[in-house]
């Protein structure tokens, strides 16, 4: 009897040893994987042109919900969308539509993106205040930035060589400039110096031969904004659609974004319509 039981036991052991071992190994494996933690934070990255709007919306939310965490970071439109694709942010601020390279990367990594327009703004070319030029046609701007015109004297200015300043290719403002000013047939002159918005403004404010461009909200007294095709970049001219270099500003997010992210995006849109003037942005289609 006892012997029989032991035999049965051994037989069981014989047949069960390997499966048990496999199960044991599998258990060890799964125990090593940390349990996924629910994230109670929203991370926003991207274009400087939309940062003031995102900051205002985020601070309002954190005031209402003190336990909430909403972070805002810059890095440009390209970095924002890249971070959205690689999972290091939840909302990307983009001052232009996604470029084909990033669209391909998202498809490659099996990430589906959605976008929404949150506001509009204008891109404004600017020069040193001592430069007498205050107006350029779209055609002249294109000829300057593709390198056809190289002296200020060719557009009614002093006999000085033109120093072009541009944003680099990951910038949404550059992308919009490419579409609105350079057009499909021209490419940016290889002579252009590439800078981010703040350094560009500092450079142009200290170099009378330089020309740069930025979002409307970046303009200040240190530089002289230019009229384009005779339309000065004033709030009313931009609102009424007379100023030609106007562009939509987007947020991008993952198609599977949870409800808190979507709610926050609606808050961004609402904040944009309520505070557009103080933020240097423009609401609606116009």
């Amino acid at each position: 009897m006892i012997f029989g039981y032991l035999t049965l036991h051994r037989t069981l052991a014989k047949y069960m040893a390997l499966p048990l071992l496999v199960l044991f190994l599998a258990a060890c494996q799964s125990a090593a994987v940390p349990a996924a933690e629910a994230r109670h934070s929203i991370h926003i990255r991207g274009s400087g042109a939309l940062m003031p709007l995102a900051q205002l919306t985020a601070e309002n939310l954190m005031q209402e919900q003190p336990e909430a965490i909403v972070t805002v970071s810059g890095g440009g439109s390209g970095r924002g969308i890249l971070s959205l694709i690689d999972g290091t942010c939840d909302i990307a601020l983009a001052s232009a539509q996604i470029i084909p390279e990033l669209e391909a990367l998202a498809a490659d990594r099996d990430v589906q993106l959605e976008s929404a327009i949150v506001a509009y703004d204008a891109i404004v070319p600017f020069v040193h205040p001592a430069n007498p030029v205050r107006n350029l046609t779209l055609e002249q701007l294109r000829s300057l930035y593709d390198g056809t015109l190289t002296s200020w004297s060719e557009v009614g200015g002093p006999n000085l060589p033109v120093v072009l300043i541009s944003r680099n290719a990951s910038s949404g403002t550059y992308e919009a400039w490419k579409q609105l000013v350079l057009g499909p047939k021209s490419i940016l002159s290889g002579q252009a110096l590439l800078m981010e918005s703040q350094p560009m403004k500092t450079y142009v404010s200290t170099h009378p031969e330089a020309i740069g461009f930025s979002a409307f909200s970046y303009l200040d007294d240190s530089i002289a904004p230019l009229a384009v095709d005779g339309a000065a970049p004033t709030r009313s001219a931009i609102e009424q659609g007379q100023y030609p270099l106007r562009r939509p500003l987007y947020v991008y997010f993952r198609a599977d974004a949870p409800e808190p992210i979507r709610t926050f995006i609606r808050s961004i849109q609402q904040t944009a319509s309520e505070h557009s003037e103080s933020l240097g942005l423009f609401a609606g289609e116009g």
């Binding site: 991370h43 972070t71 970071s73 810059g74 890095g75 440009g76 390209g78 970095r79 890249l82 971070s83 690689d86 999972g87 290091t88 990367l105 944003r167 680099n168 990951s170 910038s171 590439l194 981010e196």
Partner: peptide, 19 residues
Amino acid sequence: RDLTEDEDGANLKNYLIGR
């Protein structure tokens, strides 16, 4: 500090971990 636009690249994944 933030990566500059020139330093940044599609293969660099940067996590904000504190401020």
